[in-house]
Design a protein around this nucleic acid. Sequence first.
RNA 1: GGCCCGGUGGUCAAGCGGUUAAGACUCCGCCCUUUCACGGCGGCAACACGGGUUCGAGUCCCGUCCGGGUCACCA
Length: 494
Amino acid sequence: MALDMKYFEEMEVKIPKGKVRTRFAPSPTGYMHVGNLRTALYTWLIARNAGGTFILRIEDTDQGRLVEGATDVIYKTLAECKLNHDEGPDVGGPVAPYIQSERRDTYGKYARLLIEKGHAYYCFCEKAESGEDSGDFDRTDDPCRSLSTAEAQAKVDAGEPYVIRQRIPREGTTTFHDAIFGDITVENKTLDDQVLIKRDGMPTYNFANVIDDHLMGITHVVRGSEYLSSAPKYNLLYEGFGWDIPTYVHCSPVMRDAQNKMSKRHGDPSYEDLKDQGFLTDAILNYVALLGWSPRGDIAEQEVFTLDELARAFDLAGMSKSPAIFDIEKLTHFNALYLRAMSPEAFAEVAGPYIRESVKNKQMSVEEIAALLQARCEKLTDIPEKVAFFDSLPEYSADLFTNKKSKTDPEVSKAMLKAAIPMLEGLDQWTQDAIHGGLTALAEKLEVKNATLMWPVRIAAAGQAVTPGGAVEICRILGREETLRRLKLGLNKL
RNA sequence: GGCCCGGUGGUCAAGCGGUUAAGACUCCGCCCUUUCACGGCGGCAACACGGGUUCGAGUCCCGUCCGGGUCACCA
């Protein structure tokens, strides 16, 4: 059964040499965790920084772990994050298909080619459970390794189930180069004859990766550092085929704490979860970019980056070798920064739904409330509880009227409210300026400092000690009628 | 356990043989102020340890310790 060598010649892609091509190759689990997102970002950045091509490839070779709708999560996340791909299952491209399960036949053919070249062999052993993974790694002799081609072929033809294993040399060492970690050398005897094609005919991740990365002309293989130890086996595969070895970029993991990676199991937030928690996509990306990469040179102190700025500034030299702990506090800080940097209109737009969650009264302006909130919330989800008092006056204690710094106590407050009510009733207009002017003029007339008058008004209007915005803004939003009603209620408490 | 990788404040991190060891988050003060925020100013806090090499070491080498990864017909 001779191999059709023309097939392989035709498979060699005509991708112009010299152009950077990177790929994000997630397996569709339906869950985009933070580490994943960061890998996607870095992969995209490397491509964009070099004016190269960014490809999306779906790695679904594990038929037992298919999750319904999982690829949609990937498309959606990438699109929201603006990590647009130039080639992929949905947009097509010159080296389609971009879904591994649709490339099944290809892997088998290449595996046979590798057997032909002597770098792989059929293995008919029963599924070995472990035996190799505890204690010393002492590779037991697999009798299949030394089967002659004819013997092996006979078994295959007889319909015996088999896997195809990589034939790793037993002597010598293998050195591979990683853009972040440098040269790493291992002894070949510490490497095992890994399975390339599974019993069900599907390739393993490790094999499919090498084939696809080559066939798709990938120049930079970006992935998590958990693959660092299998990289030598990749090199042996590339060498076996006689292919150029791509640049490896192994990224250290994003940790939840010093001991554990971020994981769904531990309940760590995915990208979707973070959004539900009130974080902005841009803030998440900005934070995540800096978790494991930092700018050098004259922008070493810059922390806020747009995607374009990141694409321009990104470099492999800035990547960290050690794991980074995900700090929600710092993400929160970035989120606050992004929230404040928005135009008032844009902020009102995103904050609106959260405001309306607790302020049902349509008379009260979302725009005005949003203006109070912009510098006062770190996450969108902070909003509802902060503005609930607009909708309904909370139960509150008269103790709130006492404030040392403002020089108020129940008695003083009573006098202030008594004076403020008729003045407010008589105001020509119910505008910010009018209310502010009326109140400050009244304070002057009463010969008290502004705070002495403002404090009781704000407390009575809001019914709580801490509020977004001051007395004037709150009265303005409440409207004259409601303000007066609340102030009178306050007066009755005193 | 074998192999591989890593180790600068609580966290993210700059640093590439000579610095008072940046910066950011957190925390604490102060200023601003109509509460709270925002903003401004200031402060606490670090080179894991031990040996070398060198005139000089966070930076180079070795060892120890600690942490991570891997050792699947999962990715």
